[in-house]
Computed example of a mutant assay.
Amino acid sequence: MDEETEDPEAPAAPALCANCGTSADGGTPPATWLCSVENGRRRYFCEACARTHIRAVEGRLDSDLW
């Protein structure tokens, strides 16, 4: 299969906002963060960036176009 899967044995990388670089406390993104799958990769966006770009998010535009 061509699907990428996450290795359960690999240490979790800290969650960073793909737009502004803010890091999540504790390494996992809080429920208020946005998760987007673009080109087969998960990208996380902090609450502030998600709110700023909510119209683009609802329009399902890739974050590269924001």
Results as ranks from 00 to 15, higher is better:
Trp33Gly: 03
Arg51Ile: 08
Ala24Ile: 04
Glu58Asn: 15
Asp62Glu: 13
Thr52Pro: 01
Trp33His: 00
Ala48Met: 08
Ala48Asn: 11
Arg60Met: 09
Val37Pro: 05
Thr28Ala: 13
Cys35Ile: 12
Arg43Ile: 01
Asp7Ser: 09
Asn19Glu: 11
Ala31Arg: 14
Ala15Cys: 15
Thr52Asn: 06
Thr52Gly: 02
Gly26Cys: 07
Ala24Trp: 02
Glu3His: 09
Arg60Gly: 00
Met1Gly: 14
Ala31Val: 09
Gly21Val: 04
Tyr44Asn: 11
Trp33Tyr: 04
Ala15Val: 15
Arg51Cys: 11
Thr32Ser: 15
Leu16Glu: 09
Asn39Gln: 14
Cys49Met: 03
Phe45Ile: 05
Gly59Tyr: 04
Tyr44Arg: 08
Gly26Leu: 04
Asp25His: 11
Glu6Thr: 07
Pro8Gln: 00
Arg43Cys: 12
Pro8Gly: 02
Pro11His: 04
Asn39His: 12
Cys49Leu: 04
Pro14His: 05
Cys17Trp: 03
Ala48Leu: 08
Asp7Pro: 02
Leu61Val: 02
Arg43Ser: 12
Ala56Gly: 08
Asp62Trp: 03
Met1Arg: 06
His53Arg: 12
Ser63Pro: 07
Asn19Arg: 09
Pro11Lys: 11
Ser63Val: 02
Gly26Ser: 06
Thr5Ala: 11
Ala56Tyr: 04
Thr22Gln: 14
Cys35Phe: 09
Pro8Glu: 03
Arg43Met: 10
Ala48Arg: 13
Asp7Cys: 09
Ala24Cys: 03
Glu3Leu: 14
Ser63Met: 06
Leu61Ala: 10
Ala12Leu: 14
Ala13Trp: 02
Arg60Glu: 15
Ala24Glu: 03
Arg43Asp: 09
Cys46Glu: 02
Ala18Thr: 02
Tyr44Lys: 06
Cys35Glu: 13
Cys17Tyr: 01
